[in-house]
Design a protein around this nucleic acid. Structure first.
Lengths: 255, 255
DNA sequence: TCGGGAATTGAATTGGGTTCATAATCCGCG
DNA sequence: CGCGGATTATGAACCCAATTCAATTCCCGA
């Protein structure tokens, strides 16, 4: 009986191995030059074995993206479960996304490629399903916060559904991630710190919603304090790197 | 002397032919199945000839996207050149983008693919340069409007540069285009009319900026009237299809 | 009409993703 | 412990479409 389970664990471990090496190879040679044969070779397995895990190269890439989506989802969950006023909770989601984007700068690049019709369509249906499943909690976390905000009277939906409301910040963040990865777009306009700018615009947008209490996005000190507080309370494991290793602190280092 | 020019015209015409057929083939078989040999064959040219125009398949795709970017730029120009209060001008840009997105539903799908590191990097440097050049007026049109708004006192930049300000609506639109093309994302949340929703959120955001005069995005009648007015004044050639052919009217038909 | 440079052609090459016949391994049973 | 069938691993061979380039054709000026 246990033999079947052991086997399953072995398969899962191997899948990890493949994904890890694939990620390494991508970092080394670029997404463009990823070769299935090299992944298999780097793991000391035959090509055929690799293909028992992933039905195609695209399938592997989708798996790679899903992997990281799970990490992202965990951060969003923390924000949604935070006991704090709704406005702070929703902002903490934005902060979570900023932290995630900085810690995993390749994620959105990969995701953009993977969600492309061409790649997405070449992955197996099972894999696609799994990818969506892994992302579900991300949307649900945000949904919950918006819902609570409406319930609490902090946010007047003014004729929109909760889902339609949350599309606003969603698209704002999504667009920024895309822009950040569009070669030379932001440099051209001398935008220095895109994610901090995103934080400001999130406040601008939800101020526009009339989400209470309003927050002045131009108040840099208050913005920093708010981000710092969220890092301390929710993401202290990610923001407070050991001394001499500050590069992950989203307040002191601005992308 | 004229013989060289004639030749150039012929080359340009052939390039058009190639791009047109490629577009046709993509519509027919999908981006996934586009084959260089089929493009050449459909145009009654040898494969080698096709490769004199486009150094690679990716190069052709970038050219295809640039082609449509020029159309988009033209719409943005109209908005920027409109003699109207700054707030109406900036909103007319959003309307332009909505109209464009509806008339060219495949554009953003293609663009998402093309701006992917993998594809972008496989196009020729010249082609990439040209693509950026074609997109420049898009950004500049928006920049001009923001600049005028600040000059006129309609918009207080509150410590941000004009470029940083314009990143807000930019990312909002970009994110929505991405979301619209993410298979099943919006349906899952029952968002019926994404681009109309985008119009509302643009107003929410720039209300958050304090861009005068403020506009109530919940006022559906006023929103419709405003969109209708912009269509009439700026895009009558695109919005007012002949009787019996209303599918392009952005007010009556909502995506 | 001729010569030579430019453009065109498409068969041949290339290269990497994918398959599948074969070999190895595993497992339960007598 | 050894056997037989099932399951899994292997990698050489296959396939397919992008790309190349040597041969050919075309074009123009002399």
């Amino acid at each position: 009986m246990g033999t079947k389970e052991r086997r399953q664990r072995e398969v899962a471990e191997r899948e990890h191995l493949f994904l890890g090496k694939a990620r390494e190879l991508i970092m080394q040679d670029g997404l463009l030059n990823l070769q299935m044969a090299k992944v298999a070779e780097a793991c000391d397995y035959a090509i055929g074995t690799l293909y028992q895990h992933f039905t195609s190269k695209e399938d592997l890439l989708v798996a790679l993206a899903s992997d990281k989506s799970a990490i992202r989802a965990e951060l969003f969950e923390r924000a949604a479960n935070w006991r704090a006023p709704s406005r702070e909770r929703i902002f903490s989601v934005a902060v979570a996304d900023m932290i995630f984007a900085r810690r995993h700068p390749d994620y959105f690049r990969l995701t953009q490629y993977v969600t492309t019709e061409v790649v997405w369509g070449a992955a197996s249906a099972t894999r696609r399903q799994a990818a969506l499943e892994i992302c579900r909690p991300i949307g649900e976390a945000v949904f919950r916060i918006f819902h609570d905000a409406v319930d609490a009277g902090d946010l007047d939906p003014r004729g929109l559904s909760v889902a339609e409301l949350m599309v606003g910040p969603w698209t704002l963040c999504l667009g920024m991630h895309t822009l950040v990865h569009a070669e030379g777009m932001l440099q051209q306009y001398q935008v220095r710190d895109p994610y901090r700018l995103l934080m400001r615009h999130v406040h601008n947008l939800i101020n526009g919603y009339g989400w209470l209490p309003l927050f002045d996005p131009a108040d840099d000190v208050a913005l920093d304090a708010s981000i710092q507080r969220i890092c301390d309370e929710l993401f202290s494991d990610l923001c407070h790197a050991p001394a001499g290793c500050t590069e992950l602190n989203p307040v002191t280092l601005r992308s």
